[in-house]
Amino acid sequence: MHPQDHFVAARKADWQLLDVLLTQAPALHRLAPASISRAGALYRSLCSDLMRARSAGYDTELLAYLDGLAARAHNMLYGARPLSLRSLGGFVAHAFPRALRANGRFFAIATLLFVVPLVLSLVATLVHPEFAPAVLPQEALDASAESYAEGLEGRESGSDATMAGFYVYNNVGIAFRCFATGVLFGLGSMFFLVYNGVVIGTVLGWVIVQGHGTNILTFVCGHGAFELTAICIAGGAGLQMGYALVRTEGRTRLGSLRAQAPAVGTIVGGAAIMLAIAAAIEGFWSPSGVPAPVKWTVAGGLWLLVIAYLALAGRRRVP
């Protein structure tokens, strides 16, 4: 008998048992405790089998089998920490606001890039309404003016609710695009922040000029606290990626970008949570028929909440 056949015959049962354990559960922590330690032992003996088979020059097919099995076992045994509510709580309470404040300059620049064009185009439209058709197509302006022509107060439902779905989809997309395109040396984030500032300011100005200012402000004030802030946070994280690519501090460009990944991931994860909250508000609260003064009060509370959270949460007590 060939030595390889001896080897396979002696070890095959262990390999197949490991294979079964790996196939059984989607994640290691779902297995019974006894099975977990069994899998660990089987994996370690598989590693030495793989080395032995390689140095003895056994068949390619056998090596591929052992390689694949070892890789799968490795992937499962050296598991990432599973998601838990507890880790999510820590993320929201400390990790995100801390990471944001530590990289606050990017957030500040992004906010300027977004707010300054927004205010300028808002004022331009209010002073010279013909500014709006020069920026956006007339049909788009008419459509947005029309969708705010009727107030929401005292109604159970309406066509605006249909629009809410579109807005959520659109605005979340805006925020994530502001972030993602920052990987292009920051240029994409800059462009999308300025562009969206101009568009939002112009539409807002145009709707106000058409006489529906109260309606649109009542609609957006609730989710605006989370959504506009999250757009600036996401854009800032994008600028941070771009800055890491430009200023590498002696690393390779990829290494410099990668070094920012934990902070950027934490910040954009927080922005994603804020956007999810904004989406829920935008889907359920903003189009609802609650009286406008209630919405304004709630909106004021939400803005204060967001500012206080970002500024204060997770601060360490000074001894």
């Binding site: 159970e156 609710a161 809410a164 779905g165 956007l275 889907g283 359920f284 189009p287």
Partner: peptide, 17 residues
């Protein structure tokens, strides 16, 4: 179509995307 059903749809669309 109530605002609620559209809200549900919007949030699910967000989650899917």
């Amino acid at each position: 179509l109530t605002g609620w059903s559209m809200g549900v749809y919007a949030v699910v669309a967000f989650a899917m995307e």
